[in-house]
Amino acid sequence: MVNTKVSEVLDGSFLTYTFNLLRANVLRERKTMSLLLLQDNTENASVIQKVAVTLQQILREKDVLFKTEHTNEIGILLPHSGREESTGFLRRLQDSCECFLDPSQDRCLLASIIEVFHPELTLSNALMMCRDSLSKASETSGIQAVYADSGFERPVTMVKVSLLEADRLFRGFLVMAFERIHLPGIDLQIREFDDGLALFQSGWVNSWHPHLVVMSDVLPKKNGLDVLHELRAMPNEEKFTVLMMTRRNSEEDMIYAYESGTDAYLVKPFNLRLFEAQVKRMLAGIWS
């Protein structure tokens, strides 16, 4: 029976085009992509051919398999995957490829992983860095993974933060807590509002930036649930991460808030440390 699920193998200028396209996506979606370069240093590159067959079967639809100018090399682009996901992928590859099953044969393959998240990292640069790192790797049995560093910092993402709280003094404290949060790659732009209506009238919500909304459920004019409903009805609502603060400790309210699209829920009075931890976790989710 012929296996119909075979990925296409790209090369040449079409590959560069695809790489650039995927890299642009990376920046827009803030989801790291990994480039994997597999190298077979045995005499007639027998391992890599077997691996290539397996790869064609296990790759996901959005993954891209490509050839380089060297016949002993094969490359893979894994969108939405960082270093950990890629390492996992290699482990899976090793487990599903028959050629590694027999330990006596002592087959081995080198792999280098590089994370792509910066607009200035070109394909040829990336491949060069991979090869560079591979030259320092030692060969043992199985797939041996090394990591290449592109030398770039993650591009700084501007994250909008909206604080909606009617109590002026408490709001001030929350703003100061936010001002003291520093995360690499994230530039927090904080704005405070005393009411939901003011948030929408300010136009602050109308941009593509990821947006963290921290709000109290009871607000004078447009309350928390109204704001939540309106935010989630916007066309690009995924950009909003919502943390609801409430004085109501009833389960019914909590369930409803989660069902309407709250990402986290804090009951007042809450611990400021817990608040900071929640916020950091939510911000960490912005680059993955």
């Binding site: 009871v218 607000l219 004078p220 004019k221 447009k222 109204d226 004085r247 109501r248 009833s250």
Partner: peptide
């Protein structure tokens, strides 16, 4: 209704 939805009352 808006003013009633914004009441500070638990239930």
């Amino acid at each position: 209704i808006h003013s009633l939805l914004n009441l500070d009352y638990p239930q």
